[in-house]
Design a binder for these strands. Structure first.
Lengths: 143, 143
DNA sequence: TCGTTATCCTATTGACAAGATAGGAATAAT
DNA sequence: ATTATTCCTATCTTGTCAATAGGATAACGA
């Protein structure tokens, strides 16, 4: 199972924001870039996706930055995957149906695999991910 | 969930061979190519993978062709995926361990998703896939 | 008001893999 | 010999990922 760095960085960035904006603060791209070792310019693009997806809110201008748009408990890893990796969890048969093609047996097989992934990712929140990390090492920064 | 055409064609080809070699016959690339609408040259490469993976046996020369190397009940979709798509189901942490990198929390997340897929694909055989198709339409050729 | 520092947006580039296409060598039956 | 097949390698095209770059827009502070 290959996962793009866009997804990887996106989750890392969101986790970073969740941790460092606790208490109403804002987190800026330079901060995240340095802590998570992600190119700042590339990070900007990813954060744009996360904002458009409704995961973070942004404040422009000096001393601006990002904060979570909703609590970490309400952010599903499944939704993150879809935003960051072009609807990776969408069913093939749905896509075919949209294009007027009759769903095939093959896409039915893909869909079953898809369902396995979705079932997992839809029951896992950003908060769960943060807990995983905390339990594993106590060091939030080594994602 | 994106699946490469190599996987798609590979499974289609193997299903075609399973059906048309019933009774000890052989199935040639031109036959499969025509029935499954796959470029013959591309199909050759895929069948080479399937042969190297031990899924089919080949007979060269005139009136040669392919046959299953083992019964369809013994062919796991998981193994097919790994052969046709570069060990797509291998755990990230295993790969990291092989390269001397300490498995990370992130790869642990990927591995859990991987486990979902593997659990499904390791319990599904080529025979199951054939039954799915038969039940769905009765037309073996419209994969 | 001006400068600083941030987000926001688009264009471009380089690397790489997928998806084919092509040509021919080896092999076996007719 | 001829034909039909598997086998193997090289090449090409295209698209996506990953990253870089440049600048527009917005807010804050001195």
């Amino acid at each position: 199972m290959k996962i793009s760095t866009r997804v990887e960085y996106g989750i890392a960035a969101l986790a970073d924001i969740a941790i460092h904006s606790a208490g109403g603060g804002k987190v800026s791209t330079p901060e995240i870039s340095q802590r998570q070792q992600i190119s700042q310019k590339y990070l900007e693009q990813i954060l744009m996706l996360l904002r458009q997806g409704g995961f973070v809110r942004a404040v422009k201008g000096q001393h601006g930055g990002y904060m979570l748009a909703k609590p970490a408990e309400g952010i599903l890893i499944a939704d993150l995957l879809n935003i960051l990796d072009n609807n990776i969890l969408a069913d093939a048969s749905e896509i075919e149906a949209d294009t007027g093609i009759r769903p095939s047996v093959k896409s039915c097989l893909w869909d079953r695999m898809n369902a396995c992934l979705r079932c997992f990712a839809e029951h896992l929140t950003l908060a769960d991910f943060l807990n995983m990390q905390e339990a594993a090492s106590g060091d939030f920064y080594s994602i």
